[in-house]
Computed example of a mutant assay.
Amino acid sequence: MTAPRRTPGRRPGGPDTRGEILTAARESFAEKGFSATSIRAVARHAGVDAALVHHYFDSKDDLFVEAMALPIDPRQVAFRILDGPRDQLGRRIASVFLGVWESADGQQRMKAIFRSVVSSDEVARLMREGISEMIIQPVARALDVPDATLRVGMVATQLIGVAMARYLVGLEPVASVDLQTLIDRLAPVLQLHLTG
Protein backbone atom coordinates (compact mmCIF):
# COMPACT_ATOMS: atom_id res chain seq x y z
CA MET A 1 0.00 0.00 0.00
CA THR A 2 1.40 3.35 -0.99
CA ALA A 3 1.31 6.43 1.20
CA PRO A 4 -1.01 9.22 0.03
CA ARG A 5 0.75 11.78 -2.12
CA ARG A 6 1.13 15.21 -0.59
CA THR A 7 0.31 18.05 -2.93
CA PRO A 8 2.83 20.88 -3.22
CA GLY A 9 2.19 24.22 -1.52
CA ARG A 10 1.45 25.44 1.95
CA ARG A 11 0.47 22.99 4.65
CA PRO A 12 -3.22 22.71 5.56
CA GLY A 13 -4.55 23.88 8.89
CA GLY A 14 -3.85 21.68 11.90
CA PRO A 15 -5.12 21.59 15.46
CA ASP A 16 -3.16 24.67 16.56
CA THR A 17 -2.91 26.52 13.26
CA ARG A 18 -4.83 29.49 14.67
CA GLY A 19 -2.36 29.75 17.56
CA GLU A 20 0.60 29.52 15.16
CA ILE A 21 -0.90 32.31 13.04
CA LEU A 22 -1.33 34.48 16.15
CA THR A 23 2.28 33.83 17.17
CA ALA A 24 3.49 34.74 13.67
CA ALA A 25 1.33 37.87 13.75
CA ARG A 26 2.67 38.98 17.15
CA GLU A 27 6.23 38.55 15.89
CA SER A 28 5.51 40.36 12.63
CA PHE A 29 3.69 43.24 14.34
CA ALA A 30 6.55 43.57 16.86
CA GLU A 31 9.26 43.44 14.20
CA LYS A 32 7.66 45.48 11.40
CA GLY A 33 4.90 47.46 13.09
CA PHE A 34 1.21 47.60 12.27
CA SER A 35 1.41 49.37 8.91
CA ALA A 36 4.13 47.17 7.42
CA THR A 37 2.59 43.87 8.51
CA SER A 38 0.41 42.13 5.93
CA ILE A 39 -1.82 39.06 6.03
CA ARG A 40 0.36 37.51 3.32
CA ALA A 41 3.55 38.05 5.35
CA VAL A 42 1.95 36.58 8.47
CA ALA A 43 0.81 33.56 6.44
CA ARG A 44 4.33 33.07 5.05
CA HIS A 45 5.83 33.30 8.53
CA ALA A 46 3.31 30.76 9.88
CA GLY A 47 3.87 28.46 6.90
CA VAL A 48 0.24 28.55 5.77
CA ASP A 49 -1.71 29.96 2.86
CA ALA A 50 -3.08 33.51 3.20
CA ALA A 51 -6.59 32.11 2.64
CA LEU A 52 -6.20 30.14 5.87
CA VAL A 53 -5.36 33.31 7.77
CA HIS A 54 -8.51 34.89 6.30
CA HIS A 55 -10.44 31.80 7.40
CA TYR A 56 -9.61 32.61 11.03
CA PHE A 57 -9.40 36.42 10.85
CA ASP A 58 -11.47 38.69 8.62
CA SER A 59 -8.88 41.45 8.43
CA LYS A 60 -5.51 42.66 9.63
CA ASP A 61 -7.35 44.70 12.28
CA ASP A 62 -8.97 41.51 13.63
CA LEU A 63 -5.59 39.80 13.66
CA PHE A 64 -4.05 42.74 15.56
CA VAL A 65 -6.79 42.78 18.20
CA GLU A 66 -6.39 39.06 18.90
CA ALA A 67 -2.61 38.97 18.63
CA MET A 68 -2.23 41.76 21.17
CA ALA A 69 -4.90 40.20 23.45
CA LEU A 70 -6.68 43.54 23.74
CA PRO A 71 -9.59 43.43 26.20
CA ILE A 72 -11.83 45.36 23.79
CA ASP A 73 -11.86 45.82 20.03
CA PRO A 74 -10.53 49.34 19.27
CA ARG A 75 -12.97 49.68 16.38
CA GLN A 76 -15.88 49.14 18.79
CA VAL A 77 -14.34 51.77 21.08
CA ALA A 78 -14.31 54.30 18.23
CA PHE A 79 -17.91 53.43 17.32
CA ARG A 80 -19.15 53.76 20.91
CA ILE A 81 -17.31 57.05 21.37
CA LEU A 82 -18.74 58.56 18.19
CA ASP A 83 -22.29 57.31 18.70
CA GLY A 84 -24.04 60.25 20.33
CA PRO A 85 -24.11 64.03 20.73
CA ARG A 86 -20.87 65.90 20.13
CA ASP A 87 -21.16 67.78 23.43
CA GLN A 88 -21.01 64.44 25.32
CA LEU A 89 -17.87 63.08 23.61
CA GLY A 90 -15.72 63.61 26.70
CA ARG A 91 -18.13 61.70 28.95
CA ARG A 92 -18.42 58.79 26.49
CA ILE A 93 -14.63 58.56 26.13
CA ALA A 94 -14.11 58.57 29.91
CA SER A 95 -16.88 56.00 30.43
CA VAL A 96 -15.68 53.60 27.73
CA PHE A 97 -11.98 53.83 28.65
CA LEU A 98 -12.45 53.50 32.40
CA GLY A 99 -15.10 50.82 31.89
CA VAL A 100 -12.48 48.59 30.28
CA TRP A 101 -10.14 49.11 33.24
CA GLU A 102 -12.84 48.46 35.83
CA SER A 103 -13.48 44.83 34.85
CA ALA A 104 -11.09 42.30 36.43
CA ASP A 105 -10.10 40.76 33.09
CA GLY A 106 -9.82 44.15 31.39
CA GLN A 107 -7.65 45.56 34.17
CA GLN A 108 -5.31 42.58 34.09
CA ARG A 109 -4.86 42.80 30.32
CA MET A 110 -4.52 46.59 30.31
CA LYS A 111 -1.88 46.45 33.04
CA ALA A 112 0.08 43.93 30.98
CA ILE A 113 -0.23 46.11 27.88
CA PHE A 114 0.82 49.28 29.72
CA ARG A 115 3.81 47.56 31.29
CA SER A 116 4.84 46.15 27.91
CA VAL A 117 4.48 49.55 26.26
CA VAL A 118 6.64 51.21 28.91
CA SER A 119 9.36 48.55 28.78
CA SER A 120 9.50 47.87 25.03
CA ASP A 121 9.98 50.37 22.22
CA GLU A 122 8.66 47.79 19.75
CA VAL A 123 5.42 47.21 21.68
CA ALA A 124 5.00 50.97 22.18
CA ARG A 125 5.37 51.58 18.43
CA LEU A 126 2.98 48.77 17.62
CA MET A 127 0.29 49.97 20.02
CA ARG A 128 0.76 53.56 18.88
CA GLU A 129 0.25 52.61 15.23
CA GLY A 130 -2.67 50.26 15.83
CA ILE A 131 -4.57 52.49 18.25
CA SER A 132 -3.90 55.53 16.08
CA GLU A 133 -5.35 53.86 13.00
CA MET A 134 -8.37 52.30 14.74
CA ILE A 135 -9.34 54.94 17.35
CA ILE A 136 -7.48 58.26 17.14
CA GLN A 137 -7.84 58.81 13.38
CA PRO A 138 -11.58 57.99 13.20
CA VAL A 139 -12.33 60.26 16.18
CA ALA A 140 -10.16 63.05 14.75
CA ARG A 141 -11.93 62.79 11.37
CA ALA A 142 -15.31 63.04 13.11
CA LEU A 143 -14.25 66.24 14.91
CA ASP A 144 -13.62 67.86 11.54
CA VAL A 145 -11.40 70.68 12.82
CA PRO A 146 -7.87 71.60 11.66
CA ASP A 147 -6.09 70.51 14.87
CA ALA A 148 -8.26 67.42 15.51
CA THR A 149 -5.36 64.98 15.81
CA LEU A 150 -3.68 67.15 18.45
CA ARG A 151 -6.99 67.44 20.33
CA VAL A 152 -7.49 63.67 20.37
CA GLY A 153 -3.82 63.21 21.32
CA MET A 154 -4.33 65.49 24.33
CA VAL A 155 -7.29 63.34 25.37
CA ALA A 156 -5.04 60.28 25.14
CA THR A 157 -2.48 61.91 27.46
CA GLN A 158 -5.19 62.55 30.07
CA LEU A 159 -6.48 58.97 29.86
CA ILE A 160 -3.01 57.45 30.11
CA GLY A 161 -2.22 59.64 33.12
CA VAL A 162 -5.43 58.69 34.93
CA ALA A 163 -4.90 54.98 34.19
CA MET A 164 -1.31 55.11 35.46
CA ALA A 165 -2.31 56.97 38.64
CA ARG A 166 -5.40 54.88 39.46
CA TYR A 167 -4.54 51.35 38.35
CA LEU A 168 -0.74 51.08 38.23
CA VAL A 169 0.63 53.50 40.84
CA GLY A 170 -2.38 53.52 43.19
CA LEU A 171 -2.14 57.27 43.75
CA GLU A 172 -4.71 58.38 46.33
CA PRO A 173 -7.39 59.64 46.27
CA VAL A 174 -7.60 58.90 42.52
CA ALA A 175 -7.09 55.17 43.15
CA SER A 176 -10.05 54.77 45.49
CA VAL A 177 -12.56 57.40 44.32
CA ASP A 178 -15.76 55.85 42.97
CA LEU A 179 -15.94 55.43 39.20
CA GLN A 180 -18.83 57.85 38.66
CA THR A 181 -17.04 60.67 40.49
CA LEU A 182 -13.91 60.03 38.44
CA ILE A 183 -15.90 60.14 35.18
CA ASP A 184 -17.69 63.33 36.34
CA ARG A 185 -14.33 65.02 36.99
CA LEU A 186 -12.58 63.73 33.87
CA ALA A 187 -15.33 64.20 31.27
CA PRO A 188 -15.31 68.06 31.17
CA VAL A 189 -11.51 68.11 30.82
CA LEU A 190 -11.68 65.71 27.86
CA GLN A 191 -14.54 67.69 26.33
CA LEU A 192 -12.50 70.91 26.61
CA HIS A 193 -9.64 69.28 24.69
CA LEU A 194 -12.03 68.08 21.98
CA THR A 195 -14.37 71.02 21.42
CA GLY A 196 -13.16 73.89 23.63
Rank of each mutant, 00 (worst) to 15 (best):
Glu66Ile: 03
Arg141Met: 13
Ile135Ala: 09
Pro138Ile: 09
Gln76Trp: 09
Gly161Met: 08
Gly33Val: 07
Leu82Cys: 07
Met110Gly: 00
Arg141Ile: 12
Gly33Arg: 11
Arg86Ala: 08
Ala187Thr: 04
Ala46Gly: 04
Ala124Leu: 11
Arg40Gly: 05
Ile21Cys: 02
Asp121Met: 05
Gln158Cys: 11
Val169Ile: 15
Glu27Trp: 04
Leu82Val: 09
Arg6Pro: 01
Glu20Leu: 15
Leu143Ala: 03
Val96Glu: 15
Val77Arg: 09
Phe64Ser: 02
Asp147Gly: 02
Ala30Asp: 10
Phe29Arg: 03
Leu126Gly: 02
Val96Tyr: 05
Leu98Asn: 07
Ile81Phe: 12
Ala112Cys: 01
Leu190Ala: 06
Arg86Pro: 02
Thr37Ser: 08
Val118Tyr: 07
Phe97Ser: 12
Thr17Pro: 00
Gln88His: 12
Gly13His: 02
Asp16Thr: 13
Ile135Asp: 00
Arg75Ala: 11
Val96Asn: 03
Ser119Tyr: 03
Pro15Arg: 15
Asp83Phe: 10
Phe79Arg: 15
Thr23His: 08
Ala24Lys: 03
Thr181Ala: 14
Arg10Thr: 13
Gln180Phe: 02
Asp178Gly: 07
Val169Pro: 01
Ile160Leu: 12
Gln191Asn: 11
Pro173His: 09
Val177Trp: 14
Arg18Ala: 08
Arg11Lys: 15
Phe29Gln: 02
Ser176Trp: 06
Asp178Gln: 14
Ser38Ile: 02
Ala165Tyr: 08
Leu22Ser: 04
Lys60Asn: 07
Ile113Leu: 13
Val117Ala: 14
Val100Thr: 14
Asp184Cys: 04
Asp61Gln: 10
